[in-house]
Design a binder for these strands. Structure first.
Length: 631
DNA sequence: TTAGGGTTAG
């Protein structure tokens, strides 16, 4: 039986800790305490017990109970109580009406909320009722309605307070509403509410959610009173916008001023560590989690699994995963994805099947992990099977993100025509990633004609994505089509696009040895390339699925070129003693194919090789970099 | 009446 039924049917038991009271006022007092501590379940139980003990709720009781109905999305209970309120004659009270409006809006019944608002009776609507309706409209994505009522409350000469602005600004968290959000920012200044930290935090969040990170940072720097929520909003904002290194910088800054992080901070930091492959910072965060007693927070556990898995420490990720009692679909997805990106397709698929056996229903994201795992391990037919099951077995409609995985899967296997047919048969509009996946496949299989078509399409959708220009340019370059290379470069220049060069470095005897991809300018270059050739042929021999999926792996390993991290590793191998760990720093994320290479080389030479993010590196922002400067 | 959160290929 659920809580709603329990409360309606009066079968709730009074918990020991709630035993008190002999008048409605005392019951109300206790309800308020519980609501303050956000213990809504206990509040509902207490309310039920109050009724069973023969005490009638009064004007002060209802707001707390409506709040509970809003939290637990109990519209049935809410409307029954509403009827009860009308019977008891309390309805005109503005506080009750406000809590009713809020409850209906949280339960997505805006129409009912509006009816309550309009039935004013002898009272007029106060700022709090307007606030409830305004935030209710924005909660239900009706920003224009919210603005209408904002104007109306101004016409009525009512006071606009910080809660009004919070309600309005939180409705502008999509880029399409940025303009409105900026006008509201000016309103906040006009009303003298810009010094209110909750309003400023809300504005900050609005900017980051709209992708206006620099704007958010300006506001952050200007704020005189930064509380934990401010720091979290900025850290999560960087994290959500993929600015992982900014996250780590800000986290360090936060700690330097002795601001204690909470679970929300650590989530943002862990997610960035995962994106950068920054395992050592990630394990520091793990220590912090234990130290602060957040060890059982399921969000953090999932973030830790994801972080270790993405950093290549699958053993550690698996250990955390195994000891997690309540594994959600997110925990499973993180683990499956971890095996997938490191080339363990079979294990990923087994884990997926195990998840289904455990009664966890896969969602769209889980399928993205599964399909990409198939793609990276060359398990083409398995991937097609899972894609098919997505709809037939689980009733999930594939989105463009699934099609892009499938195009990648078919494309890598050389089945370019099937990939093209798949795109043409898509029920949803292909996005940039779908055409990008086809372009990537064309690069591997050197199909210029199809690549040009894919490039044309991808440019209509993502003209500012440098990666696609580089792919096409490299394809032309492989085919010795210098005219093509030039054409792409001119296009990039015209559109003012610059590629931040991927580079890696190793610290050796107090000096930094830095390498770009395909770099031949290092004094030890000859020896390094000889060693690299030898390692590449050994890697091809031992690649996990080399025997049955030989063709794909051959293409994978020969098609990937001389990445900067490969050169840095070889330099480390040539110059350091056997047994010592080789630590390579990289300014960009290590690509999946390189991860496999690093892992296998590590096995061949029996050395621990760590490739980490170069977070201290700031030399590349203008796109200029010379290796010679660092020797 | 109220601001911050985990999993996603290329």
């Amino acid at each position: 039986m659920n809580i709603q039924q329990e409360c309606l049917e009066g079968e709730a038991k009074e918990p020991q800790s709630l035993r008190l009271t002999n008048s409605t006022t005392l019951w109300n007092y206790r309800l308020r305490e519980l609501a303050k501590q956000r213990q809504f379940l206990q509040a509902l139980t207490l309310y039920r017990h109050m009724l069973r003990s023969g005490y009638s709720p009064n004007t002060f009781t209802f707001p707390f109970v409506f709040k509970c109905c809003a939290v637990f999305l109990f519209p049935l209970m809410g409307s029954q109580l509403h009827a009860h309120v009308i019977r008891t004659g309390c309805q005109p009270d503005p506080y009750i009406r406000t809590s009713l409006i809020s409850m209906y809006c949280k339960c997505n019944l805006v129409h009912n909320a509006r009816k309550v608002f309009d039935e004013v009776g002898p009272w007029r609507n106060l700022t709090i009722s307007y606030n409830a309706l305004i935030s209710g409209y924005t909660f239900n994505s009706k920003i224009l309605d919210a603005l209408v009522f904002f104007c109306r409350m101004r016409e009525e000469g009512l006071l606009v307070d910080s809660v009004t602005m919070l309600g309005l600004v939180s409705g502008c968290t999509v880029p399409a509403h940025l303009g409105i959000g900026m006008c509201l920012h000016s309103c906040c200044v006009k009303f003298g509410l810009d010094g209110d930290s909750s309003v400023e935090n809300c504005l900050l969040t609005m900017y980051v959610k709209c992708g206006e990170v620099e704007h958010a940072r300006q506001l952050f720097d200007k704020m005189t009173e930064k509380n934990l929520i401010t720091w979290n909003a900025m850290i999560s904002g960087y994290s959500q916008n993929g600015l992982a290194r900014h996250v780590l910088e800000l986290y360090r800054e936060m700690k330097s001023i002795n601001m204690c992080p909470d679970h929300v901070t650590l989530l943002g930091v862990l997610s960035s560590c995962a994106n950068l492959g920054a395992q050592s910072i990630g394990s520091e965060v793990e220590g912090e989690i234990e130290y602060r007693g957040f060890g059982s927070n399921p969000f953090l556990t999932n973030a830790l699994i994801n972080m270790y898995a993405r950093c290549g420490n699958l053993m550690k990720a698996r250990a955390i995963f195994d000891r997690t009692a309540d594994k959600s679909v997110i925990s499973w997805t993180a683990m499956i994805g971890g095996y997938g990106i490191h080339g363990h397709g079979e294990i990923a698929l087994n884990l997926f099947d195990e998840m289904v056996k455990c009664g966890i229903r896969p969602d769209g994201t889980a399928f993205v992990s599964v399909l990409s795992a198939c793609s990276h391990a060359g398990l083409t037919d398995e991937g097609l099977k899972y894609f098919d099951e997505m709809e037939t077995k689980y009733g999930l409609k594939p989105g463009p993100e699934h099609y892009s995985c499938l195009v990648d899967l078919l494309g890598r296997a050389g089945r370019l025509k099937e990939a093209m047919d798949l795109i043409n048969s898509m029920k949803v509009k292909p996005d940039g990633a779908v055409w990008g996946a086809l372009l990537g496949a064309c690069k591997i299989h050197k199909n210029i004609e199809l690549a040009e078509l894919a490039f044309e399409r991808v440019m209509e959708l993502e003209p500012a994505n440098i990666g696609y220009y580089v792919l096409l340019s490299n394809l032309y370059s492989d085919a010795k089509n210098m005219e093509g290379v030039l054409k792409v470069r001119v296009m990039m220049r015209e559109r003012k696009l610059k590629k931040e060069p991927g580079c890696s470095y190793v610290e050796y005897r107090g000096k930094v040895h830095l390498f770009l991809s395909g770099d031949t300018s290092h004094p030890q270059s000859d020896d390094m390339y000889k060693m690299l050739d030898k390692l590449e042929s050994l890697v091809k021999e031992i690649h996990p699925s080399a025997e049955n999926e030989g063709r794909r792996n051959e293409e994978l390993l020969t098609g990937m070129g001389v990445h900067s991290e490969k050169l840095a590793i070889v330099f480390g191998l040539l110059n350091t003693k056997p047994g010592t760990e080789i630590t390579v720093m990289k300014n960009l994320r290590v690509c999946v194919d390189c991860h496999i290479f690093i892992k296998l080389v590590s096995k061949i030479v029996n050395r621990r090789i760590v490739v980490r993010d170069a977070t201290r590196f700031h030399h590349f922002s203008d796109g200029v970099c010379s290796c010679r400067d660092y020797w």
